[in-house]
C-alpha cells in the first residue's frame, strides 16, 4: 500500500534555515510514535546532512536549494535530501578519523549511527545529489 508523502519542502542552502528544517522534521516525526530520544536523533541526522550539503555540495553558496522528501512504508521512514550542486564523488564522503579529537567527519559519523541506512544516490538523469536515509519504525507505531 502506498502512503502519502509526510513532507515535501525545500529550503535555501543557508545556515539560518537549519532551525526551521529541524522544526519541520520534528513535526513530521512526532505523530509517528517514535520516542523523544529517537526524534532528537533523527532531527540531528537531518541537520548534519543539510549542514554537509551547505558546506561541501554548495561550498557555502547560500542560493542553492535543499529539497527534503519524507515518505514512509510499513517498515521505515524514508528521508530523501536532494541538492542541485555538482555531483559529489561517493568516496569523498569523509569518515571520522580514528582519533576522536581530530577535526572533521563528525556529521557523517552521527548520520550513520542514528539512521538504519545512509546512501548517496547518483542517477544519470538527475542533477545534483540525493542522500537517502532510512529509519526503521518502532514496533507498534502507526
Amino acid at each position: 500500500m502506498s502512503h502519502p508523502p509526510l513532507l515535501c519542502k525545500q529550503w535555501a542552502s543557508c545556515p539560518s534555515e537549519l532551525s526551521d528544517i529541524r522544526k519541520n522534521i520534528a513535526d513530521v516525526c512526532q505523530p509517528l510514535g517514535f520516542p523523544q530520544t529517537d526524534i532528537d536523533q533523527i532531527v540531528l541526522a537531518i541537520d548534519e546532512a543539510c549542514t554537509n550539503i551547505m558546506r561541501y555540495a554548495y561550498k557555502g553558496c547560500r542560493e542553492g536549494v535543499i529539497k527534503i522528501d519524507v515518505t514512509q512504508d510499513s517498515q521505515q521512514i524514508i528521508f530523501k535530501l536532494h541538492d542541485y550542486a555538482k555531483q559529489v564523488p561517493k568516496d569523498c564522503i569523509k569518515k571520522k578519523p580514528s582519533a576522536l579529537c581530530e577535526p572533521g567527519g563528525l556529521g557523517v559519523m552521527l548520520m550513520r549511527q542514528v539512521m538504519d541506512s545512509v546512501e548517496f544516490i547518483h542517477t544519470k538523469d538527475c542533477k545534483g545529489n540525493i542522500l537517502e536515509m532510512r529509519k526503521n519504525r518502532v514496533k507498534g507505531n502507526r
Partner: peptide
C-alpha cells in the same frame, strides 16, 4: 550539532597545548 562540537574540539586541542583546561558542565538531553 557537529559544527558546535567541532568548535569545542578545536578549543580543547588549543587548551591542551596551552596547559589550560576546557570543562563542559550541565550537559543533558539532546
Amino acid at each position: 550539532d557537529s559544527s558546535g562540537m567541532a568548535t569545542l574540539v578545536e578549543g580543547l586541542n588549543i587548551a591542551n597545548k596551552m596547559n589550560l583546561t576546557l570543562t563542559i558542565v550541565g550537559a543533558k538531553d539532546a
